[in-house]
Structure formats: C-alpha cells, structure tokens
C-alpha cells in the first residue's frame, strides 16, 4: 500500500514563555511540545492521546501554523508551512482545517450559525450566493441540526449543538486535512456515533485525512488507523491501532489502557485500575532523562539522566523507552 505522507512533522518544538508571581515578576518556560516527529499519511486517521496538558492541542495548533513553532518543520505539499507568515500561509488554509476543543471561544458571537458556516464557502468561492442556503442546510443536516438553526446565534445553542456547528464550518471548506481536537467530546453517544459515521463516510468518499485528538479510547480504537501516545510534551509511542491496543510497549501506554472505564456498573465497582503513583511533573520543570521516570514503575538509573531515543522497534511501531528491547517480537 504505497501510502504517501500528507504532512511530515519533523522535530517540532513549542515553548511558551509565561510570567509568574502575583505581579508577573518572574519569567518561566512551559515546555509544551518537545522534539515531536511523525508522518500523517494521506487518507488515514491518526489519533493523539495522552494526559490532559501533555501538549496535544498545542501540537495541533502548531502544525497548522496557528501558533508559531519554536523550532522544527512541518512539510505539506513540499513547503515547510510553519515557516510561512500569515499571508503566504493563506493558500494552504482552506485545505488544512481544525475543529477547536473549545468551540464557543472560536465562533464569532455576532454571526448567525448560517453566516458562520457560509462564510468560508463564499470566501473560498465554493458556491454561488444563490446556492448558499441549500449548501448550509445540507451541512447542518449532515451534523444533525435542522436548517432553522441557521438563524440562531452561537449563545442560543446547547454545548453539543455548538460543537456540531464548528464541525460543519470545518467541513464547509472541503478540506484535505482536519485536526479534530476533542471535536465530539460534548456529544451524547448517539449523536457522537452519527458524527463518527459522517467523518468515516467523508474519508471514504474524498480521502480526507484526520488528526484526531481525543481521550475516549473506545472511540479512538474505533476510528483510528494509527495512534500516537504523548506524555509531557513528547511522543512516548506511535503504532497501528492493532499494535497499540494489543501489544502496548511503553509503560505509560500500559497504565493508560488499564484505566479505561466500561459501561458496566458491577465491573466498575470492583475494578482495579493501575493508578500511577509518584509526582506528576509540571511542564514548567520537566524531569531530565525520560520525562516519565518520576511515575514509571520500572524506571532504571539511566532513565533519570538519558532521554530515551525515539526508535522503530517493529515495522510501524515506534517507542521511546530504555526498557524496550532492541527488537520486539511482532
């Protein structure tokens, strides 16, 4: 299967400089994303999972050049897009869309839902003015909203309805690639299923590529071709869905998978999760060596000083851990 990478992410770094102290008198650096490399193949769904605050959204923002990368490259159609200024970025914007984690803060409160969804269609000349109402109605129907919603304002919607407007807006651009940042997290399971089905249909029809950021591992397992696990700004593991769920190699991935709750009260009352002990480090002062060593149940001496190398131990299965043998029986 000669799948071509749509995007090549090379050693991406994003640090934030913040002010601390009651008067903002002290400076500090947040190591949000550090030296992350991976390819996103055309037509695939690559999911990113990991603890809250580990840098998933920042990775999404930075690789679309919505936040300036501190270092590293993202190659799309032969161009390193993270080096482009806003003007030179513009031709790529339509193809590269994002559904934000927090839709309310990104939908213009003074625009109706119809305007929010219709704006990119007109801007990119994807339909004429006369065709527009129909186009908007169809997009809203796709995400399960009646066409009357076009007249409403974002604050007149429930949380899940707003999230679906954000999805409709991204789809309106007829993109090649969408970063879905917790894009279905506010939806009940039935609407969630409807949106997942829609995303999979569009992928089949138009070869869309998704970077899917989510915390619901059952959903991730359902829709992903490959899954990347992040920990404190770094990639810990990246593998195909089968490899990751049936043969997780990184100690953090193993702990994460053991915590997945099941919709079964009896099981839930008695289950034993592998709770990670030890200090949760802050991205303001990430530990030296392997960033997971403060909580890793099998940490060794070298873990405290040497950063584990990012390597492919079986074809397609990447991991960064000193304890994983050079080649693992696949």
């Amino acid at each position: 299967m000669g799948a071509q990478p749509l995007l090549k992410v090379e050693n991406l770094v994003k640090h934030f400089v913040v002010k601390l102290g009651a008067f903002g008198e002290k400076g500090a650096t947040v190591y949000a994303v550090d030296d992350v490399s991976f390819d996103i193949m055309t037509g695939e769904t690559l999911s990113l999972v990991g603890e809250s605050g580990c840098g998933k959204s920042t990775t999404g923002f930075t690789l679309l050049n919505l936040q300036r990368a501190t270092a590293g490259k993202v190659i799309f159609e032969g161009e390193n897009i993270v080096a482009l200024d806003e003007k030179r970025m513009r031709p790529y914007r339509r193809a590269l869309q994002i559904v934000f984690q927090d839709p309310y803060s990104t939908l213009n409160p003074r625009m109706t839902v119809g305007e929010v969804v219709g704006e990119p269609i007109l801007f990119h000349k994807l339909a004429t003015k006369a065709e527009l109402p129909e186009r908007i109605a169809r997009l809203l129907a796709d995400v399960g909203l009646p066409s009357r919603f076009a007249q409403r304002y974002p604050h007149e919607l429930s949380g899940g309805q707003r999230q679906r407007v954000a999805i409709a807006r991204a789809l309106a651009c007829q993109p090649k690639f969408i970063v879905c940042d917790e894009a279905i997290s506010a939806l009940d399971v039935s609407v969630q299923a409807q949106i997942i089905n829609l995303l999979l249909d569009l992928q089949q029809k138009y070869g869309l590529t998704y970077l899917f950021i989510a915390h619901d591992l059952a959903v991730v397992r359902h829709i992903s071709d490959r899954v990347g696990v992040m920990y404190l700004g770094r990639l810990a593991e990246l593998a195909t869905r089968e490899q990751l769920f049936s043969n997780p190699l990184h100690p953090y991935t193993k702990a994460l998978l053991s915590a997945v709750p099941e919709a079964d009260p009896e099981l839930e009352q008695t289950r034993r999760r592998q709770i990670l002990t030890g200090d949760v480090p802050s991205p303001l002062a990430p530990p030296a060596g392997c960033r997971f060593h403060t909580r890793c149940p099998i940490a060794m001496d070298q873990c405290r000083s040497v950063v584990p190398e990012w390597r492919e131990v079986v074809p397609g299965h990447h991991v960064a851990c000193h304890a994983v043998a050079e080649s693992v029986p696949g």
Partner: peptide, 18 residues
C-alpha cells in the same frame, strides 16, 4: 443510547449504530 456506545472490541471503521 446504550447501543450507540462504541465497544473496545469493535472492528475499525465499522458503522456505529445511532
């Protein structure tokens, strides 16, 4: 609602019931 929950054992990309 209960039938719409994706199961960890699902096939990839099978359609979810909604």
């Amino acid at each position: 609602l209960l039938a719409s929950i994706p199961k960890l054992s699902d096939e990839r990309a099978s359609r979810l019931s909604s």
